[in-house]
């Protein structure tokens, strides 16, 4: 659990982060969104003390993050950034082993961890381990960057626009990978982005920052249904609201008993995907199958239309 308690950071008397308090639940993904200059990156960097706050306190599992030297704190917190920041003079394997080496792990344990992570990120350890970062594609470099951040099995992973430099197709894949990895390790992830689609795709909770303040902090649905300020409304986009609502709910939640014709959809896809499939194929209902492929019912177009409306 990360408790951010009345944290303020001022540069030349201007508050970049202004009296922010929020609690981030363990094993969740929290996405901090906002325009550039809203203080979201500064807030993130105060968690691992790359920036020291002017006032306030941040507690990790109850302990003040200033209770140990900054470099020791950072070794316990994963940190992944835009443009990956891989060390160009070190191989992929050495890059991933950065923090374990700083912590003085034994070599066999380090090698095993590197191999495990590379496999998890679908990079063949024998092939990619000895390569240098410049020999990888952008998407591979980014995966190695996240793998490096996770190498010492941190409870908390901070990500500063980690997918910002990727093209849309690789970005979608990277986001899905991140969700899978978060499930796998149960890591608490705090991610900063200005991409609302990314936020809605990944977040358990979204914090919206504007001019150094958190103007709304809650589950994605809440942001769509009850935006607290006009800024939040604009950020979400009026025209996007019904689709955002559908995008954060699973198809499983809209299933009713019955049968339907045509191509089925898997229950763990979003309701937005189901709507898209219905509209595109011109059907009134479509069959839903479990992750294992067993038919479990159908979704009707009219159900989805009701669910996309403001009041239910």
């Amino acid at each position: 659990m990360i408790e951010i308690d009345a944290i303020t950071k001022t540069y030349d008397e201007i508050a970049v982060v202004d009296d922010v308090s929020m609690v981030i639940e363990p094993r969740t993904i929290t996405v901090v969104v906002g325009t550039s200059g809203s203080g979201k990156t500064t807030l993130l960097r105060m968690i691992n003390r790359l920036v020291e706050p002017t006032s306030g306190e941040i507690r990790l599992d109850g302990d003040d993050n200033r209770s140990m030297p900054a470099h020791e704190l950072r070794r316990r917190i994963g940190y992944a950034i835009q443009g990956h920041g891989l060390f160009p003079h070190r191989t992929v394997a050495q890059n991933i082993a950065t923090v374990p080496r700083l912590l003085g792990w034994e070599k066999p344990r380090m090698d095993a961890k590197v191999a495990e992570l590379l496999t998890l990120f679908q990079l063949e350890p024998e092939i990619f381990g000895p390569r240098y970062p410049h020999q990888l594609s952008g998407g591979q470099q980014q995966r190695v960057g996240v793998a490096r951040a996770l190498a010492a099995e941190p409870n908390v992973l901070l990500m500063d626009e980690p997918f910002g430099a990727l093209d849309p197709i690789i970005r979608a894949k990277a986001q899905d990978d991140l969700l899978a990895i978060q499930k796998h390790f149960g890591t608490t992830i705090v991610l900063v982005t200005h991409d609302m689609n990314e936020a809605f795709h990944l977040a358990n909770k979204i914090a919206v920052m504007d001019k150094g303040k958190v103007v709304q902090y809650g589950p994605p649905v809440e942001l769509v249904r009850a935006p607290t300020t006009d800024f939040v409304k604009t950020l979400i986009g009026d025209a996007e609201r019904p689709f955002r609502l559908l995008s954060v709910a699973n198809a499983a939640a809209a299933v009713e008993p019955g049968e339907a014709e045509g191509e089925p959809i898997q229950e763990d896809r979003s309701q937005q995907d189901a709507l898209a499939a219905l509209l595109w194929s011109g059907r009134d209902a479509l069959p839903v199958v479990s992750v294992g492929g067993k038919p479990i019912g159908r979704i009707k177009l009219s159900t989805l239309l009701k669910r996309a409306a403001r009041l239910q």
């Binding site: 070794r75 990956h84 920041g85 490096r148 901070l158």
Partner: peptide, 14 residues
């Protein structure tokens, strides 16, 4: 490169 230096600090190097 800034991102490399940032990563080095973020990884907890003294």
């Amino acid at each position: 490169p800034r991102s490399v230096m940032e990563a080095a600090r973020g990884a907890g190097m003294t």
